[in-house]
Amino acid sequence: MKFGVVVFPGSNCDDDMVHVLGTVMGCEVKKLWHKDTDLGNLSTQDCIVLPGGFSYGDYLRAGAIARFSPIMQSVINFAKAGGYVWGICNGFQILCEAGLLPGILLPNEQQKFICKNVWIRIESLQSPLTATLSAGEALKIPIAHAEGRYYADKATIDQLEVNGQILFRYCDANGHITPQSNPNGSLHHIAGICNANRNVVGMMPHPERCAEEILGNTDGRKLFKSLLATTRLTV
């Protein structure tokens, strides 16, 4: 599996992602520039990552303007053809604005930018990111966002629940869903979801920030390992 990491004006987690994919996981990875439409040699067996950051300064709404950049039309076609797309933080916001994932990320309940470690519980193994993990397992992954309060109408949320499209929920260190463990007011404690075809995934926490021993936490690496293992290419 090869990777393309999209760089928008204002992306700031692109280098971390390229480092983890290339140096830590040993994968072939290249950056994709927002003004281009060419995805190069990426096939639908490969994965495009929309990294975290503040694309276009979060003007208007987080992700609203990035969603119309030239590369995104190619990313939308790639996703519709079955290619893997993984959006983290601002990438998740962009995927929602683009309509590749349902719902939207609203400003945090407390009107604050939150940057801290949180725990998320694996809810569904039916996605390449979670397939090799255990349901109910809690991972410690940092969040860093001002707009992370997941919202969708009731019918959409019901559908996500029934289809097992909710991949991660905010929880405490023991994997319990408590009111205190929801950092931003997300509906149903949602921290990450996938689309119905399970090839598009969005999540607010940053696994690329906790994938190496030197950083004191390697929980994020489990998601990278699962993605590579399920797509049948070992590290």
């Binding site: 208007l60 709404r61 609203a64 303007i65 119309f68 939207i104 609203l106 919202y151 109408d153």
Partner: peptide, 9 residues
């Protein structure tokens, strides 16, 4: 409809 407002929110 396309940019200035997101009708979900």
């Amino acid at each position: 409809d396309k940019l200035l407002a997101n009708v979900i929110m």
